[in-house]
Design a protein around this nucleic acid. Structure first.
Lengths: 351, 351
DNA sequence: TTGAAAGCGCTACCAT
DNA sequence: ATGGTAGCGCTTTCAA
């Protein structure tokens, strides 16, 4: 058994308070006594104040939780999530705080438990919308939290982008280039949708709020160009990763009037689409592709995409958590997006 | 202020134990009483038992810490780290445990503090060697831990690969193809080495143990093929990511006798090298490239590489933590590696 | 500069 | 099935 602070105090012949001060408030005791305490402690194998006990007593933990829907691994699969995390980590580090990554299991009960058990001082919610009312559970904990979901409740701290108009900008880029037969490539279009073409009667049927908003923006742009929603191809990827994007595009039967462009809802999917198309020879290379996020791999691949500032999003979220704005109405921060045109998109080839 | 369990007990008119049981041991009280307690609690806004207090009382936390040297963001930059983390996460999830990602600041003092403050039940040490004796601090906490470093202390639980012979297999592949003028691309060759060619008198001068072991394996293979260490080009990348790999290769002046192959110490670097070389036209395309890890992006890129089982490494590490082998000598697990030959490597072109 | 006392919020044991 | 008691290990007044 590890010795406790108490044991050290007895060994040195001082009170527990003094030992505690030796660790947490060096200015409260003489340097020599402090040294003597620390030496004895080391010698006894005392590991320093127990973090849990300290947290309980102090009333705060020194860690913030980052909540993810779906498997934790998803957090790492998408390069954009990675950038977000990087930003959060950076800000947390500055505030001497660690990061507790909390995967939310699929069921609400499990998700609740995860939120209730997390020993943290606050939450960054990095996930979809409020599937299953998990936000209420978070609110119930009475801890500060920041959302990045597509639709924040009024009063909640939030950092995000205008998903709809961001997506519209990509779609308008394609319509301006003359594209009319376009495949919309996304994960999370419908629950458990596999790989391949999908019938989606109405954009509002898409449950995942981010995907819905992006597709709605796309629909806006094409409607303005005279292309009805039903004339667009919705292409489902089984996962949000490069391989799944490639697989989805491969599954798309060319047909008599093949699509001239693929508009993907994330860069990883778009890169997968490029993989598949470039492997498809001359034909494939002429298909335009756009992505979303502008992850680091996008530029070398020449991918046209909508840039959203990932790290800044993470940093901002953490900042909102650590330094809440005095005025609650300043707690919703919308970050700008930019269409970055590279070589993966071009005019419709004259056949 | 949030109500406590105590307050709920008073409101319902039962003892604290009973309320506690309502949450943690449903079988200890009648269903109806339990329901009444839960309802009252919800109504009062009681968030459920405070995790910190619970941990203190129970004596365990329900979270394991994953320790990283260098910036936390590094954890997410390398796709291999991501796979490892995925494996750990998976195992942790099965054990109802969360993951605390603990970035170790550069200085030893800061790193110590991070280890000492982490409220966890055990550690997975995912990083280099024992830079600065941080392992001793971990050991000092008296918590179980698992290392993945290149050189475990005897008795410590460890999971890893034979770095040296794994790297040798890649190098032998190149020598068998006739390559003699080869660039060795690595991050962490020397502390704070930037981008570009580096003079490394001796492999043993490389401080980072993993990099050292891999380079040593490469040296073995080339020595066997009659190529001295000093005839190999050591190419330093400023970071362990794709862009840095590309930058390093671009910085390599072709010279009169350009390298015919690039052997990278990680797949992300190798993919960067391919980016740079493929942009370099016909000439560049003829340079062979090999990587290390076999991350998901390697296959689509046709990258020849040494596969190490990332997720399995993570899963095994966590398993070792949660279910320690009865026999301590079984606590060191070496995972197999395989050379995966794809299209990025080929015979030296006859010029 | 040091120490004594009080309790952070909870759960596990042992009675009843 | 329910309650009383006794801390988990620490920090923080406040008094000396």
């Amino acid at each position: 058994m590890k010795p406790t602070l108490q044991a050290v105090a007895e060994a040195v012949g001082v009170s527990r308070s003094t030992v505690s001060n030796a660790y947490g408030r060096p200015d409260q005791l003489s340097a020599e006594l402090r040294q003597r305490i620390l030496d004895t402690a080391r010698q006894m194998g005392y590991p320093g104040p127990n973090p849990t006990a300290r947290s309980l007593r102090r009333g705060f933990v020194g860690a913030i939780g980052v909540l993810f829907t779906s498997r934790l691994s998803y957090a790492f699969t998408d390069a954009f999530a990675v950038r977000f995390l990087t930003g959060v980590a950076e800000a947390a580090e500055r505030h001497d705080s660690s990061l507790l990554l909390v995967p939310l299991p699929v069921g609400l009960a499990g998700a609740r438990k995860a939120v209730e058990n997390a020993a943290v001082d606050g939450f960054c919610v990095y996930c979809a919308g409020d599937e299953g009312g998990i936000i209420d559970t978070i609110r119930g904990r009475g801890l500060p939290f920041v959302t990045t979901s597509a639709r924040p409740q009024p009063g909640d701290r939030w950092v995000g982008i205008d998903e709809r108009s961001a997506a519209r900008s990509a779609a308008e880029h394609l319509t301006a280039l003359g594209h009319r037969r376009v495949a919309l490539l996304a994960h999370d279009v419908l629950p458990d949708a596999g790989t391949g073409r999908l019938r989606v009667a109405n954009v509002t049927d898409v449950p995942h709020p981010t995907t819905r908003d992006r597709l709605a923006g796309v629909a806006d742009a094409f409607a303005a160009a005279g292309v009805a929603w039903s004339d667009l191809t919705v292409l489902s990827a089984a996962d949000n990763d490069r391989a799944a994007g490639a697989a989805a595009v491969r599954a798309l039967d060319a047909g008599p009037e093949p699509c001239t462009a693929v508009l993907a809802c994330s860069d990883v999917l778009a890169l997968g689409a490029l993989d598949a198309l470039r492997a498809g020879g001359e034909e494939g290379r002429r298909v335009s592709v756009t992505g979303f996020d502008d992850i680091p791999e996008a530029a070398p691949a020449g991918l046209t995409t909508v840039r959203q500032p990932g790290e800044e999003k993470g940093r901002t979220a953490a900042a909102l958590l650590f330094d809440p704005p005095a005025d609650a109405s300043a707690g919703q921060i919308q970050l700008p997006t930019t269409l970055v045109v590279r070589t993966s998109s071009g005019p419709v080839p004259r056949s």
